[in-house]
Design a protein around this nucleic acid. Structure first.
Length: 605
RNA sequence: GCGCCCGUAGCUCAGUCGGAUAGAGCAUGGGAUUUCUAAUCCCAGGGUCGCUGGUUCGAGUCCAGCCGGGCGUACCA
């Protein structure tokens, strides 16, 4: 709808200004206050300045043209005149809005057209370290990345998701060292990943040898005393693995399946899937070639025993080989980048990674672009984006830890969320819904895990935020539960009224005149429901899912007010049809929006 | 030192490219259920947008300086 307004404006604009119409059209937006109409254009002011005219006069001239344009008048009410310094406020015609509602009702995609230019987009997110249990720090990348993948796909792009597992780094050296020095066979047999993560946590302390940590952990302290060279030995184990040492390789082969089953289990609960899980180990055979290539190209050179890429304007080099011969994650990232360019030929690669790595990616991207590898041409044309997000902080403003100092396990968080939801599902009002145990459990999973995801997605991804268990598991206010509840109410109406929703959609789509938006609450709801396409476009432009959550919350809020004030099933004639259509459209739209965020939507709550 | 990011209500945060009276949620106080799910709705209080200056019809938003905080900064990822 906004799009049509824009084309109307642009047709007019052409006679006044030539080239920079797109920028001017950006100055059309929704109004801040409904009393100013539905949309407002602020382009008269800057344009007038450039032309040396009075803003209000220019706005007046534009308005005359708009009112004379049939394309415009078919969709918008007659514009009376400029407001204030030169605002042009327009209001969508009620019959045009009704047509929009009817069209969306009859469309499985809710009126969202696929993008004109579909692109191949590789999305790199989650990427946990298999040696460590997943914790709250992994939520953001996983949840944001998954939501972006779903949204870009829905928009019509070819999306390839790849979970770049950390399965080849120093952490594995720690596990190997721990396995050889202090393993608990029985514990390993009973629960392999639990034992491996115990070893990881223990050996990390031993290797780091920080006095305050050792003081708090007698076992680690004893080991550190017995093995003063532990730190060096861990690196040696890592190096041996990389060099193809038979025993370390055998252990790695043995540990990996269990590690991967463990993370798959968590992804299962989160409804997160990947097209590929090519971990760091997959690219390991290519690493030596990266170093040779970059050195031969003159980009990388030896320095202090290591090999690094020295870039203009960068204080420090991007190291791609350590003095001891081992490769670093920059090496893997470069190899991965080139491999993806060659095999998937993407138009874009998005990395959903903590903002603390922005410098790293900047260096990797710059290096990749000037690298004359086989995929050089592709690489040069590719858009490489670090979709950075803020750190999750504790109340002390430092990266989040529990009181005991350990990272909060992801699974424990999920369990807690489901438990809290379960307590509410069982309360008063809901008993009458007659849900059985299995249904209650299902609703609790959707609500509890939805709350956790939503807490992350609704936050502007670029800023750090203070982790609050209570806030994240909140089930009222601006949370997933609020939207889920609104959908459940729609389902309730449809069920209680015995509504054939498919028939309703067809009827409305075939006869838009059956929609009459008489009440302002109906009108506002309709206007909001039709914004899905525009919102998704904005989400893609800046990779910001919080724009979607913000709009969903607004839509659900408008629906709740509508629901509270206006009876649906008891209405009659066109009024009933209109309200039923609005319920159906809102319910479907909210459901679609939540699903694009990876949040489940139960039929009842 | 250098680079990047942040500072908005008691708390947690939105605020698009500079637009009209700076918004939500939580918390606090008041009200609403013979009527489709009260996980709801309606109303109220609450602000030096870190500070100072600049740009202009208009600045939370852009520019400069300052104060405060975070992160990164050579062989972890």
């Amino acid at each position: 709808m906004a799009g049509v307004l824009q084309s109307a404006m642009s047709a007019d604009e052409l006679s006044i200004e030539a080239s920079d119409i797109p920028a001017l059209l950006e100055l059309v937006r929704e109004t801040a206050d409904p009393k100013f109409g539905d949309y407002t254009a602020t382009l008269a002011m800057p344009l007038a300045k450039r032309l040396g005219a009075k803003p209000r006069d220019l706005a007046e001239r534009l308005i005359v043209r708009l009112n004379a344009d049939t394309c415009f008048t078919r969709l918008f009410d007659h514009v009376t005149g400029p407001v204030g310094p030169g605002f042009i406020n327009v209001r969508v015609r009620d019959d045009a809005l009704a047509c929009g509602v009817a069209a969306a009702c009859g469309d499985p995609r809710l009126g969202v057209l696929p993008v004109a230019q579909s692109e191949t987009i590789v999305l790199d997110y989650s990427s946990p370290n298999v040696a460590k249990p997943m914790h709250v720090g992994h939520i953001r990348s996983t949840v944001i990345g998954d939501a972006l993948a779903r949204i870009l796909r829905f928009r019509g792009h070819r999306v390839i998701t790849d979970n770049h597992l950390g399965d080849w780094g120093t952490q594995f050296g720690m596990i190997l060292w721990g396995w050889k020095h202090c393993r608990d066979e029985a514990a390993y047999t009973a629960d392999p990943t639990a034992e491996l993560s115990r070893l990881y946590r223990l050996v990390r302390k031993v290797a780091d040898a920080k006095p305050e940590e050792l003081a708090a952990d007698p076992e680690a302290a004893a080991l550190a005393e017995a093995h003063p060279e532990a730190g060096r030995e861990v690196l040696l184990e890592t190096a041996k693995l990389h060099e193809g040492d038979a025993e370390n390789r055998r252990l790695w082969d043995e540990f990996m399946p269990a590690c991967r089953r463990e993370i798959e289990r968590i992804y299962g609960r989160l409804d997160v899937t990947f097209d590929h899980t090519l971990g760091e180990s997959f690219f390991q055979p290519l690493l030596a070639g990266v170093v040779t290539d970059l050195t031969a190209a003159g980009l990388a050179r030896e320095s202090r025993g290591a090999i690094g890429v020295f870039l203009d304007g960068q204080e420090t080099p991007l190291l791609i080989r350590k003095a001891d011969g081992a490769f670093l994650y920059a090496t893997t990232d470069l190899a991965t980048l080139a491999w993806r360019a060659e095999h998937w030929q993407p138009d874009r690669i998005l990395y959903v990674v903590d903002h603390r790595q922005s410098q790293h990616f900047q260096q990797v991207f710059t290096t990749a672009r000037s690298w004359g590898c086989r995929a050089a041409e592709r690489l040069a044309a590719m858009q490489l984006v670090h979709v950075a997000f803020g750190t999750v902080l504790g109340e002390d403003g430092k990266p989040f830890k529990t009181r005991a100092g350990a990272a909060v396990g992801l699974e424990a968080l999920l369990d807690e969320g489901v438990e809290r939801a379960l307590a509410i599902v069982g309360e008063g009002e809901h008993a009458r819904q007659g849900m059985d145990e299995a249904q209650r459990q299902e609703v609790a999973e959707a609500v509890g895990i939805g709350a956790i995801k939503y807490a992350d997605l609704s936050q502007n991804r670029t800023t750090d935020y203070v982790f609050s268990f209570d806030k994240m598991l909140e089930l009222k206010g601006n949370t997933a539960a609020y939207m889920q509840y609104a959908v459940a109410r729609v389902e309730g109406i449809a069920g209680r009224g015995g509504i054939d929703r498919e028939a309703l959609r067809q009827q409305v789509a075939a006869d838009p005149a059956s929609i009459e938006l008489a009440d302002p609450r109906e009108r506002r709801l309709a206007l909001a429901a039709l914004r899905l396409a525009a919102v998704l476009e904005d989400v893609e432009a800046d990779y910001r899912p919080n724009l979607l959550t913000g709009w969903l919350f607004e839509l659900a809020g408008l629906f709740s007010s509508f629901y509270d004030a206006l009876p649906v099933l008891k209405a009659e004639g066109r009024q009933r049809t209109t309200r039923l259509a609005l319920c159906d459209l809102t319910g479907r739209t909210l459901r679609q929006g939540l699903e694009l965020l990876g949040i489940r939507v139960p039929l009842q709550m």
